[in-house]
């Protein structure tokens, strides 16, 4: 359906925006390496089914490969900045202080509690959903500490937020047309959207209304 395709495309757009900008400007200003590392973990644990070769469609398989590849490439580019622009890299690392063990640990526990089947694939899948829902937190934490958001960060988070928002009408659509309700995805998806809503709300209040930028 249209919501799902638009959702996937804005997800892809968010990564392309990030990739292109970092590639072109060699700037990592305002980007959280920790959030990006979490996304690599999210994609790798979620798309493990690629290895089973029970592929759903060309679209599905290609997108999965692109997401894994692009997220790894982002890390590579950030690491290249380390040698090219050591000052900016150090500055980024100094501000990227969120402790990700407080996200990975609880997500692993949640995956053990909430899953459809106690198999490696299903546990990893559940883990990836929980982790994706909170993976943006180091990024938001960084924004709240610095008190200002660069154009790159803003565009990136906007595209990601749009992707999450579009998945909600997609689930409603699928519930009515296919009778499909995938509770784990919906719950973690709503949780994730709530985190983004907070960003959008603050962004609207502070930036659009022109009063600087700060997150609670």
């Amino acid at each position: 359906n249209i919501f799902r395709i638009l959702g996937d495309l804005s997800h892809l757009a968010s990564i392309v925006i990030l990739l292109r900008t970092v590639q072109k400007t060699r700037q990592v200003d305002g980007i959280s390496l920790k959030t990006q590392l979490l996304y690599v973990l999210v994609f790798c644990t979620r798309y493990l089914d690629l290895l089973t070769f029970r592929w759903k469609s060309v679209y599905n398989t290609l997108m999965k490969m692109v997401f894994i590849g692009a997220s790894v490439r982002v890390i590579q580019l950030i690491q290249e900045c380390k040698t090219r622009n050591a000052v900016a890299y150090k500055d980024m690392m100094a501000r990227d202080t969120f402790q990700i063990k407080y996200l990975v640990g609880p997500c692993a526990i949640l995956a053990l509690v909430f899953n459809y089947k106690f198999t490696v694939l299903e546990l990893c899948w559940s883990f990836s959903l929980w982790l994706e829902s909170v993976a943006i937190l180091p990024q938001l934490f960084m924004l709240s500490r610095s008190g200002k958001a660069g154009t790159l960060t803003t565009h990136y988070i906007f595209a990601l937020g749009l992707y999450r928002a579009l998945y909600i009408p997609n689930w409603i659509w699928r519930y009515y047309t296919e009778g499909r309700l995938e509770k784990l995805s919906v719950f973690t998806g709503l949780l994730q959207t709530a985190l983004y809503s907070d960003f959008f709300y603050i962004y609207y209040k502070k930036v659009i209304k022109g009063a600087g930028f700060e997150l609670p």
């Binding site: 997800h11 997108m63 997401f67 089947k117 998945y167 997609n170 509770k183 995805s185």
Partner: peptide, 10 residues
């Protein structure tokens, strides 16, 4: 096929 456990979304 249990529709709920088919993870066809990205």
């Amino acid at each position: 096929v249990d529709a709920v456990t088919v993870h066809d979304e990205l």
